[in-house]
Amino acid sequence: MGFPICVQCGTGSNPCRCKVVGPTVGFLAMAAAAVVEWPVGAVVYIFKHVKGRRIMAHPATVVYPKVNKAIPI
């Protein structure tokens, strides 16, 4: 198993129009957040369905986009 590499082409954030570092680091940050937030969200989901879904979606909807946009290459 190798290191995950994510490529995003067609972006306007740099002159090359492709990003490799931002999406890859964003994916790793999302995976790290998901390890913590998905089990917590599953427990919360038992009592509060909407809140549990929001917690479980947080890595994909907040963490990944913020990290990806923060690194322009």
Rank of each mutant, 00 (worst) to 15 (best):
P4S: 06
C6W: 09
V7N: 08
V7Q: 10
V7L: 15
C9L: 08
G10Y: 12
G10R: 15
G10K: 10
G10W: 14
G12F: 04
S13K: 04
N14A: 07
N14I: 04
N14W: 03
N14Q: 02
P15Y: 02
P15W: 09
P15K: 09
C16K: 15
C16W: 15
R17S: 02
R17V: 00
C18F: 02
V20A: 04
V20C: 04
V20W: 00
V20N: 00
V20T: 06
V21H: 07
P23K: 04
T24I: 04
V25L: 15
G26A: 05
L28K: 06
A29K: 07
A29E: 03
A29F: 01
M30I: 06
A33H: 06
A33F: 05
V36Q: 07
V36N: 10
V36M: 08
E37S: 10
W38A: 14
W38R: 11
P39R: 05
G41S: 11
G41K: 04
V43E: 07
V43D: 08
V43A: 14
V44F: 02
V44C: 10
Y45W: 13
Y45R: 09
Y45K: 11
I46F: 10
I46T: 12
F47C: 08
K48C: 03
H49Q: 13
V50E: 09
K51P: 06
G52I: 08
G52F: 03
R54I: 07
R54E: 11
I55V: 14
M56Q: 11
M56P: 06
M56L: 01
A57H: 05
A57L: 02
H58V: 07
H58F: 12
H58Y: 11
H58A: 05
H58C: 09
P59E: 09
P59I: 10
A60F: 13
A60K: 05
V62A: 14
V63C: 05
P65H: 01
P65Q: 00
P65I: 02
P65N: 03
